Computed example of a mutant assay.
Amino acid sequence: MKLPTCGEAGTNGKVRIRPYMNQYDLEGRTAVITGGAQGIGFAVVKRMLESGASVAIWDRDETVLRACADKLADADRVYCRTADIGVLASVEAATKATLGRYGKVDILINNAALVGPNMPTWEYPPEAFAEVVQVGLNGTFHCCRTVVPHMMERGYGRIVNISSVAGKEGNPNAVAYSSMKAGVIALTKSLGKELADRNIAVNCVTPAVAKTPGAMAQAPEHIAYILGKIPRGRMLELEEAASMICWLATQENSFTTGAVFDLSGGRATY
């Protein structure tokens, strides 16, 4: 069943998928989206469903995941799975379950991450730093390490890692988040080179601040600082991020790999 018409709630509480100017061909593809129950991840879920893909949503928050499942009208092409990507065994179990449901994974969107508190490096709690890195960087590694062998067997794959402009420039009072996102960029470049001759593209995007639950939970003065750095003068729309991410996940993206695609509204200078 095709989803009706992204981002708005219909009168029955289900999500209506809005028609887009450009249509992506993801018919017959299966995608795993970590942290897909909200924010940019959920926007990607909706766009991929509209594009014909089957989607496995991995999220460690059962309450948010359940609410996400309730919103989506197309139950046949959506599989919601509780998974903590910071734990390798949890990723391995989620991968096994997803393969059992769909038989393959064509696309991996590594979106799940924690933002962490806002404070100077010399005051930053070591346990908070470790948790941010464990989920956002180690978790991305866990997912790639587990899913890539299945892509190699099939001779096809598209991986999109969600980094941040903070990973390029480093945001003050966000040492853990900036460090983690910089690591995601380096992981992307390394893995992209390793898989370049296997028809598996690995790229990442570097969004500026968007209205995600994690971003909006930061200190108001920190949000004002990073918003003030964007020449566009506004936040990134979730659907704008989903549009670029979904194109990178298509078969059309057949040459570029190990690359970083800017979503900073003009902030980044490289």
Rank of each mutant, 00 (worst) to 15 (best):
V165H: 02
S163Q: 07
P120H: 06
G155L: 15
T121W: 08
N110V: 13
C143E: 01
D106H: 10
V132R: 06
V165T: 11
E169W: 01
A130G: 00
P120A: 04
N161C: 09
V105R: 03
G136M: 13
V165Y: 03
G103F: 09
Q134H: 07
A112Y: 03
A97F: 05
G167A: 11
I109C: 10
V115R: 08
V175T: 14
T95R: 08
P125D: 04
N161R: 10
A128E: 02
G170H: 06
W122T: 12
Y156M: 09
C144K: 06
T98A: 05
F141D: 00
V175K: 02
E92T: 09
V133Y: 11
H150M: 10
H150Y: 15
G170D: 06
L137Y: 07
D106I: 13
K168V: 15
I159Q: 04
N171D: 06
K96H: 05
G139L: 13
T146I: 10
M119T: 11
Y124N: 04
K104F: 01
M119V: 13
A112W: 14
S164Y: 07
V165A: 12
P149F: 14
A130Q: 03
G100H: 05
G100E: 11
I109S: 02
N111S: 07
M151F: 10
A94P: 00
G155S: 08
F141K: 08
Y102Q: 08
C143L: 12
A113W: 08
H142K: 11
V133H: 03
F141C: 04
R145H: 13
M151W: 13
G167F: 13
E131M: 10
T140E: 00
G136F: 13
G167C: 13
V160S: 02
N138V: 13
H150D: 04
C144G: 07
L137W: 11
V105C: 11
V105Y: 02
A93F: 05
P125A: 14
F141V: 14
L108D: 04
M152V: 15
N118W: 01
R145Q: 02
T146D: 00
H142C: 09
D106A: 08
V165G: 06
V175N: 03
I109R: 03
H142A: 01
V135D: 00
A97K: 12
T98G: 03
E92C: 06
G116P: 01
T98P: 02
E123V: 09
G170P: 08
L114T: 03
A94R: 00
T140V: 10
V133F: 13
A97H: 06
G116F: 15
N161W: 14
A112V: 15
E153I: 15
S163A: 15
R101V: 15
V105N: 01
